Amino acid sequence: MVVYQARVGDGFREKGLKRTNSYFSTPKEAVTEALALKKKIDSLYKNEIKWDYSEEVTGPAEKMKILKGYLSGHEKSKAFYLQIISMKRQEEFSIVPPIKLKNISSDDEKMMTKVVKLFK
């Protein structure tokens, strides 16, 4: 069985952000979690990250970057990114529900649909 994990890469601080021990059974749950983490990092940077929905999804299914963003839209700065990681389930992995979002933008909804199709 495959499990998925959502991560956010903080280009400014050069470190990743994820919810500890958060593994999901479907790609859609992982993308939902990634969007919740995106909302968290957006609030940390006072919504100054400009997310580029026009870029292609990159990387293999094991480590797929699904969305990139740049602080104040400066593409020369280090990128922020949302990433879905897939791996074989192990005994110590516990499946958890994703953080529930109250609303999702249409751009985020389109991106979620595209990513879920890529995993099928």
Rank of each mutant, 00 (worst) to 15 (best):
V96M: 02
I104S: 14
M111R: 09
S43A: 12
W51E: 02
A34V: 06
S77N: 04
N103M: 09
L101G: 13
L101V: 14
E75A: 15
T113L: 01
Q83D: 06
Q83Y: 08
E33F: 09
L71F: 10
E109H: 04
M87S: 14
M112K: 11
Y23H: 06
V31Y: 01
M64F: 03
S25N: 04
V116C: 04
K39R: 10
A61G: 03
Y23N: 06
Q5M: 01
K39E: 00
Q5Y: 03
L82I: 07
P27K: 00
T26K: 04
G16Q: 03
L82R: 02
K38S: 10
D108E: 08
A61Y: 11
I49E: 00
K78V: 12
T26I: 00
F12P: 02
M112E: 05
T32Q: 02
S72V: 10
S22A: 03
V31Q: 01
F80L: 04
E48T: 15
G69E: 00
E92A: 15
K88E: 13
F24E: 02
I104N: 09
E33R: 06
T58D: 08
S94M: 01
P98Q: 00
V3C: 04
I104R: 08
M87T: 14
K100Y: 09
K39W: 06
K68Q: 07
E62T: 15
G9P: 00
K50S: 07
A34Y: 00
I99E: 06
K50T: 14
K18W: 01
K65E: 02
Q83V: 08
A34L: 05
V115N: 03
K28N: 12
N47M: 07
K68Y: 05
T32S: 01
G9N: 10
V116K: 00
K120I: 10
G73I: 02
L71R: 02
L71I: 11
F93N: 10
K114D: 08
I104F: 08
N21T: 15
Q90C: 09
I49G: 01
E75M: 11
T20G: 04
S25Q: 05
M1S: 15
Y81V: 07
Y23S: 07
K110N: 12
T26G: 09
I85N: 01
Y70H: 13
D42A: 03
G59I: 01
V2M: 07
V57S: 03
E48V: 14
K78H: 07
Y45C: 12
G73V: 04
D107C: 13
N21Q: 05
F93K: 10
S106F: 09
K76F: 12
M1L: 08
E62D: 10
E48I: 12
I99M: 06
E62M: 08
K63E: 04
K110F: 05
K114E: 08
A61T: 09
S94G: 15
L118N: 12
T58G: 12
D52I: 13
D108F: 02
Q90W: 12
I95F: 06
A34F: 11
Q90I: 13
T113H: 06
K38N: 11
K18T: 14
I84D: 00
A36G: 03
Y53A: 02
F119V: 13
T58C: 11
K102V: 15
P27A: 01
S25T: 14
R89T: 05
H74I: 11
